[in-house]
Amino acid sequence: MKEHKVVHVVDDDTAVRDAVGLLLSTEGFDVHTYPSAPAFLKAIATHHQGCVVTDVRMPEMNGIALIAKMREERIAMPVIVLTAHADVPLAVEAMKLGAVDLLEKPFEDDALLMAVDAALERRNVEESRSRESLAIRSRLATLTRRENEILAGLLRGLSNKVIAHDLGISIRTAEVHRANIMAKMRAGNLAELVKMALATGSREEQSPE
């Protein structure tokens, strides 16, 4: 049993909350579930322990607002975001605010368990991240100047259309560059690409303030 491995699950959907809680407790985590973000914040007011798995779309306070609030209150608990739809602006925002991972529902059980493990073992996370980011950095280094410009646009959540306009190129050219970036970075889709790029430790320079 992983007695001290505390996981807080925040989701307004009873079934998801229950299933996720069940999975994590089956694997020996100390699971606490909350139907809303305020309920969670109230419960952990005194001691900040473990990591958080939160849904995005919730009434009262959504997952992104919760991360922002925790950051504001200096609650230093790693957050994993679960979302029914991971569009790029959302992924970028969540990662910028400090979410350690983002999973799309329905998700693979192993993916969640690995994410939780990683979040709890901060040191290991840092290690694996630095190893991973080394590989990502080496791939990033192969991007051309134009491709870097386009990647920067993508990380700002811009559409191909806007990026193409800003760079004075055709949408089709932007799309070709983007496809090449994906191939070079070995990203299966845009969300993965964003995650990779943000995980290379360049978070400070993209700090919202």
């Binding site: 959907d13 079934a15 998801v16 229950d18 299933a19 996720v20 069940l22 999975l23 089956t26 694997e27 779309r57 679960l82 029914a84 739809h85 529902k105 329905p106 998700f107 059980d109």
Partner: peptide, 23 residues
């Protein structure tokens, strides 16, 4: 969009339940 969100919730729960059962 609403439908996708709403359907993905029970799908996620079901997938997770199945995984838990397997484990």
């Amino acid at each position: 969009a609403t439908l996708a969100h709403e359907v993905n919730q029970p799908l996620a729960a079901t997938a997770t339940y199945l995984k838990v059962a397997r484990r």
